[in-house]
């Protein structure tokens, strides 16, 4: 299998403060990798650094295909509140000046499990789960090889969480999209991911196969994370 992303010796700074220290990892096509850490450990910074959205970065980030797409935590801020769902999904097509946009939007809505009549709704008229589906649809419109999902289910109800996770899992299986799944909840990460990395204070302190990390953690910190959920 080919590599889709490789990060080597990445240091990132924000306002002169170092946030990430010497991060190195790589992802293969169609792989789901979980990145676990508590708030403030730099996991969102890592996501933005991978997308070249942090100005001060040292190290090497190599994307094998085009830019990855991102799904955000807060479904209230990740959609333009003044645009209808159909128009939001159409935006990437407009930017690329594609034809038959309406059909593509409708087929995408079906793919991510949104009813057709939602096309004329504004984001404020949707539930959290529906919004997150719109975000996933927007990301998929660009046929990415890799999706970075930053806490995509943390703000959702548990019943909705399960459905959104299933959608991500199905996309990975059907379209072979790699997912970098960022979360603070090891349990959710274990459900979905093939490989788990534990981030603490800007450093990756443990990484390995899902079962290894989950059932046989090496680090004290990982054990602490696990004890919180069991």
């Amino acid at each position: 299998m080919n590599e889709i992303l490789s990060v080597e010796h990445l240091n990132a700074y924000y306002k002169k403060k170092q946030i990430l220290y010497d991060i190195s990892f790589s992802m293969k096509e169609g792989e789901i990798v979980g990145l676990v850490g508590e708030s403030g450990c730099g996991k969102s910074t890592l996501a933005k650094a991978i997308l070249h959205m942090i100005p001060k970065v040292e190290g090497k980030i190599v994307h094998m295909t085009q830019m990855p797409q991102m799904i955000f935590q807060d479904p209230y801020h990740s959609l333009n509140p003044m645009m209808k769902v159909g128009r939001i999904l159409e935006e990437p097509l407009r930017i690329r000046r594609e034809k038959n946009r309406k059909e593509k939007v409708l087929s995408m809505m079906e793919r991510v499990g949104l009813e057709e009549e939602l096309i004329d709704r504004y984001p404020s008229q949707l539930s959290g789960g529906q919004r997150q589906r719109v975000c996933i649809g927007v990301a998929l419109m660009q046929n990415p090889g890799l999706i970075i999902a930053d806490e995509p289910v943390s703000a959702l109800d548990v019943t909705v969480q399960a459905k959104v996770l299933k959608l991500l899992c199905a996309l990975n299986r059907d379209y072979h999209i790699a997912i970098l799944f960022i979360s603070h909840d090891l349990r959710v990460v274990y459900e979905l991911c093939d490989r788990i990395m534990i981030l603490k204070d800007g450093r990756i302190i443990e990484q390995g196969k899902d079962d290894e990390v989950f059932f046989d953690p090496k680090e004290e910190y990982t054990k602490k994370l696990l004890s919180a959920i069991l």
Binding site: M53, F72, H77, S78, I95
Partner: peptide, 26 residues
């Protein structure tokens, strides 16, 4: 700095597009 503006940037939308199509109406 809102997430949806970052999303448009990831789509390759130009700055002018973001400013006048995505922020100004708000």
């Amino acid at each position: 700095n809102m997430d949806y503006v970052l999303a448009i940037r990831l789509m390759g939308g130009s700055h002018l597009r973001i400013m006048f199509l995505h922020i100004l109406p708000n």
